[in-house]
Amino acid sequence: MKYYSLLKRGNSHADYCEDNLFVHSWNDEFVLAAVFDGCSSGEDSYFASALLAKITKKVCLSYTLSSQNIDIVLQEILFLIVENYHKQANTLALSTNELLSTILISITDINTKQSEIICIGDGFFAVNGQAIEIDQQNKPNYLAYNLSDIAVLEKFNQWYTDFPQKYSFYNVNDLSIATDGILSFVIHSNDQKLIMAEEKNKITSIEFLIKDTKLNALKIMQYRKYNMIKRLYGLINYDDLAMIRIIL
């Protein structure tokens, strides 16, 4: 199994990238990938995303696998993230407006090639090259809206059971998860041919990121592909982009 990450500030954000990401593998058995998209109209939302990434890291480092069922593992880890996020929000006296970030987490069993994905808010993922966009018309249902309600285990379990944006996949060989910045490539070149081909090149660029395996011997593969998109298609991401690709 190999994983590749990509984190790039969007052209529309002058100072900060409001997205973040984290990847963790347990003994090359299970791998967790998570991307977070801070809300631009929130307050210091780069911080919300970074805090979630750090909390996810802390949770993963201290988590002992209790089950071979990755849906259960995902549920347990997500609860620990929610519990810790709620605690940190209280400790730092953060308002809801300072906690607005989407969460997209996948857990993959490397041996059985099964993946479980949860998307809280909007996002994008691709399984074996098939892209799926979770679109909430730019009004994502952030975790922060329900945080204090679901920071207790019983309530969380009920919320998790009822939560609709959960997905299971089998025979996974190539999985990508990303914030919606992956859909925001725009032309930044004056080359008329590239401008004419913008829409086609946007689609090709996304496919390049989720399907193409050139340079897969390099950990930096997705960054290199990103630069190629910029150079060859004259495209650049308007919105911040966090992406993790796992090739089994």
């Binding site: 340079l215 960054y223 290199r224 592909k225 990103y226 630069n227 190629m228 150079r231 060859l232």
Partner: peptide
């Protein structure tokens, strides 16, 4: 050589 190599690098995603 610097320009040739630079072009090769940029085409393979290296700034």
């Amino acid at each position: 050589n610097a320009i040739d190599y630079r072009e090769n690098l940029e085409n393979s995603g290296v700034e």
